[in-house]
Structure formats: structure tokens, C-alpha cells
């Protein structure tokens, strides 16, 4: 690409960035803070309640995670999770609820292409990268930890 064209493109992109509407960062952050916080509070209350029934903390938190995953999957299935996320944003995408949604939504979507090449192949199309790089990072950090200690 010629330099002149390059400069023209830069100028145009600079102009576009100036006129383009910006995401509402502050109100999005506030909404995410409160919805994310609400999920955590619900999780905490559930955990304490389960513990009060006589289970230890580790088992109780596993059950809480299962409940949160199930709720997100159920709401995805009902078709309302994406509507809630439109409001909540990172408040529901960052917790385990977002991960659950990113697996159930392709499962629903690609069912039409069949059980094997649709659901089977596409199930992890959104969550896959998170798993691959999450596992990779944990292995590297594990090696570093082993060397240090």
C-alpha cells in the first residue's frame, strides 16, 4: 500500500474514531459491578445455607458452582440470558455463568447441523479458546511455581 493511501486511511480512521459513539464505560461498569456482586452474594448465601445443612465448605462451594452453572444454562435455554447480559454485561459474562452460556448457546444453535458435526464440533467454538489458553497458562504457572518452591 502506498504511503499516501496509508496516510489517508489513518486520517479517515482518526476522524471516524472522533465521530463514532462511545460505549458508556462508566454506567456499564456500575451495572457490571452490581450484577456481578449480586451473583456473588447469592452464591455466598447459598454456600452458607448448604454448610448449615452439615456439608463442609469445599463440597458446599462445588454445589454452589453447579447451581450457578445450571441457572445460567437454564436461562440460556429459555432464551432470556442474552437479554439479561445486554444489561449486566461483564457482571454475568465474567463469572462461571458466562462460561456456561458460551457452551449452551452453540449447542442450541448448531443442533440443526446434526449431533456430530453440529453440536459435537461446535460445542466449544466459543469456550474452546478459553479452555486451551486457560490450561496452557495454568501449566506454565505450575512449572514456575514448582521451580520457585
Amino acid at each position: 500500500m502506498s504511503q499516501k493511501k496509508n496516510r489517508m486511511n489513518q486520517k479517515y480512521n482518526y476522524y471516524v474514531n472522533n465521530v463514532a459513539p462511545k460505549p458508556k464505560y462508566i454506567s456499564n461498569c456500575i451495572k457490571a459491578f452490581f450484577t456481578g456482586g449480586t451473583v456473588c452474594i447469592i452464591g455466598f448465601i447459598l454456600q452458607k445455607w448448604i454448610q448449615s445443612k452439615g456439608l463442609d465448605q469445599k463440597t458446599a462451594s462445588s454445589i454452589v458452582i453447579m447451581i450457578l452453572i445450571f441457572s445460567a444454562q437454564f436461562l440460556t435455554g429459555l432464551g432470556v440470558f442474552d437479554d439479561i447480559v445486554k444489561f449486566a454485561g461483564a457482571g454475568l459474562i465474567v463469572p462461571i455463568t458466562g462460561f456456561a452460556n458460551s457452551i449452551v448457546s452453540p449447542a442450541m444453535e448448531y443442533k440443526k447441523e446434526g449431533i456430530v458435526l453440529g453440536v459435537g464440533a461446535k460445542l466449544f467454538s466459543l469456550a474452546g479458546p478459553v479452555l486451551v489458553w486457560g490450561f496452557s497458562a495454568s501449566v506454565i504457572i505450575g512449572i514456575i511455581y514448582a521451580i520457585i518452591t
Partner: peptide, 17 residues
């Protein structure tokens, strides 16, 4: 949406543009 972007029920926030 399913060809160019995400599954329909995937939760995300679209940018204002």
C-alpha cells in the same frame, strides 16, 4: 448472526456502532 457473529443465545454487549 450465526454465520458472521455469535450463536443467537450467546450473551454479549454490542458496541454502539
Amino acid at each position: 448472526e450465526r454465520q458472521y457473529r455469535f450463536p443467537l443465545e450467546h450473551g454479549n454487549q454490542k458496541p454502539p456502532t
